[in-house]
């Protein structure tokens, strides 16, 4: 699974790195960033990633 954040849509609610700290971190403004940029996440983190995507108020997280 590949995880990306739409930087235009993210406004820093912070739900992703609170719910899925192994997949996301915050930048210095509190916007979400993906830890494994340009790489797939390990299968054991897919549940976290899905939960974060489902909880993003701006629907800024994309899974592929």
């Amino acid at each position: 699974m590949r995880v990306t954040i739409d930087g235009q849509a993210c406004t820093g609610h912070g739900r992703c790195y609170a719910l899925a700290p192994d997949v996301f971190d915050s930048d210095d403004r509190g916007l979400g960033v993906v830890l494994s940029v340009g790489a797939d996440i390990p299968p054991e983190l897919e549940r976290q990633a899905r939960q974060a995507a489902a909880n993003c108020p701006e629907q800024a997280i994309h899974l592929s």
Binding site: T11, Q51, P57
Partner: peptide
């Protein structure tokens, strides 16, 4: 609740600065 995309802090560019 598994999914909670609430907007108690608003949303979009003016999302509450002090939410954290």
């Amino acid at each position: 609740r598994e999914t909670n995309r609430h907007l108690a802090f608003g949303g979009g560019v003016h999302r509450c600065l002090g939410s954290h």
